[in-house]
């Protein structure tokens, strides 16, 4: 599923508008604990999280996550957004709670990382 479609489904805002959104997302991981993100294969994936610190980006860069959706209306500060741009990681934010964001994407056919 393309980022454009994910943005639409989640009624999300794109925080990194200068990064190419023509990226195909294969699978989704969802966690607030970065330790748990590191314990799974996330290649080419999307991370849904409520954590907005810089460690989310470093963890994403280590595990080849290409896009992050921040839920519950949380917006990271400028330093995090700037680093995402430098690491070519797409950032989106939605007002939806985590469960609903995951449910909507799953319903539309996006699979989890273990499938």
């Amino acid at each position: 599923m393309k980022i454009k479609k994910i943005k639409e489904i989640l009624n999300a805002e794109l925080l990194t508008d200068d990064i190419n959104t023509d990226v195909e997302i294969q699978a989704v991981n969802c966690a607030d604990l970065m330790s748990d993100v590191l314990a799974f294969q996330n290649k080419g994936g999307l991370l849904i999280t409520g954590l907005i610190n810089i460690q989310v980006l470093r963890t994403a860069a280590i595990t080849d996550i290409v896009a992050i959706v921040f839920v519950r209306g949380k917006i990271p500060d400028k330093a995090v957004i700037d680093e995402a741009k430098s690491k070519n990681i797409l950032l989106l934010c939605t007002k939806l709670p985590m469960y609903e964001a995951c449910g909507l994407l799953y319903k539309e056919g996006l699979k989890g990382i273990s499938e």
Binding site: D32, L33, M34, S35, N53, Q55, V56, T59
Partner: peptide, 17 residues
């Protein structure tokens, strides 16, 4: 540490894995 997203007790086992 947990507020930073770490401390799930997965680090060392994940290194071993």
């Amino acid at each position: 540490i947990r507020n930073m997203g770490f401390g799930a007790g997965m680090g060392l086992p994940n290194i071993k894995k």
